[in-house]
Write a protein that binds this DNA or RNA. Structure first.
Length: 267
DNA sequence: CCCGGAACCTGAAGGC
DNA sequence: TGCCTTCAGGTTCCGG
């Protein structure tokens, strides 16, 4: 599932193909993928636009244009693929560039979303601090945790609390910080908060270095897999021994999501 | 504001 | 073999 490291990888690998190019043709096999404006206006207004640069806020990819910006969220199964060799049955939008290249927005479950916006805050305005933004510090995290009754895992998944962390990396960060996923935000000590902050940064940076995690459908723009999943300690590893103490990793359901943790290390 | 649950989606996997 | 249920989880919406 694309979380911050996956979107960052896609941004980095797509940029050389996109920056300085313009969109010569946009087609929408699934117009429902466009959230704003209407799919017809989206197509018309995007055609001919020049790409100035790529950015990211949380899990949102932001393609800055000479006017306006194209914002893409991949949700669960979305991918942006360069020149797919086979016809893609899950193509929801196809962007042809002025050099003949094609970028296909492929999304099996149709949960992904596209916007054309004048100001990014129309789309990402309610996000919390980006997990890799220098403005996000241990002090900021501690302040945001204070007084919160919700389980810390639920807070990490709330993009209004912190933008970029999803289910996999929340589990990895909580394991690295030795914090049980059900601990309430307000019950975390200053030491817990400091360890959690460092764990979040380390886990995300390591995953970016490994070009993201291909747990299920994630592919990089060239079709390659990421390798971050090979370094996972607990995420999706129910029943396997904890790398620290060999206790079997447990799974619990939190908000309809699988949460993996070590019942001995994480208290 | 805070919290938890359902809905949106489709394909894979498992039970019987 | 085939039908049915469950699971996968990022986000938004809604009710308490």
């Amino acid at each position: 599932m694309p979380e911050l490291p996956e979107v960052e990888t896609i941004k980095n690998e797509l940029a050389p193909h996109l920056v300085g190019r313009s969109f010569s043709q946009v087609s929408l096999p699934y117009p429902g993928a466009v959230k704003r404006p209407s799919s017809e206006d989206f197509r018309r207004q995007l055609t001919g636009r020049l790409v100035a640069g790529l950015g990211r806020r949380g899990k949102y990819l932001i393609i800055n244009l000479d006017k306006d910006m194209l914002i893409i969220h991949l949700r669960m199964t979305g991918a942006l693929l360069l020149r797919p060799s086979q016809p893609d049955p899950w193509a929801r939008a196809v962007f042809r560039l002025d050099d003949g290249a094609e970028i296909v927005f492929s999304d099996r479950r149709k949960l992904g979303a596209l916007w054309l916006a004048e100001d990014e805050n129309e789309v990402v305005g309610k996000l919390g601090p980006d997990a890799l933004d220098p403005a996000f510090t241990a002090r900021v995290l501690a302040r945001r945790l204070s007084g919160r009754e919700a389980p810390v895992k639920a807070l990490l998944l709330d993009q209004g609390f912190l933008a970029g962390v999803g289910n996999m990396y929340a589990d990895e960060a909580l394991w690295a910080a030795r914090i049980h996923p059900l601990r309430k935000g307000k019950e975390l000590s200053p030491g817990d908060g400091e360890r959690l902050f460092r764990a979040i940064r380390l886990v995300l940076r390591t995953a970016i270095g490994n070009k993201g995690a291909s747990i299920s459908t994630y592919r990089r723009p060239g079709g390659e897999l990421g390798s971050a999943q090979n370094g996972f300690k607990v995420a999706h590893l129910g029943g396997r021994p904890c790398p620290e103490c060999a206790t079997p990793i447990q799974r619990l359901a939190l908000r309809n999501r699988g949460s993996y943790f070590c019942p001995r290390c994480q208290v």
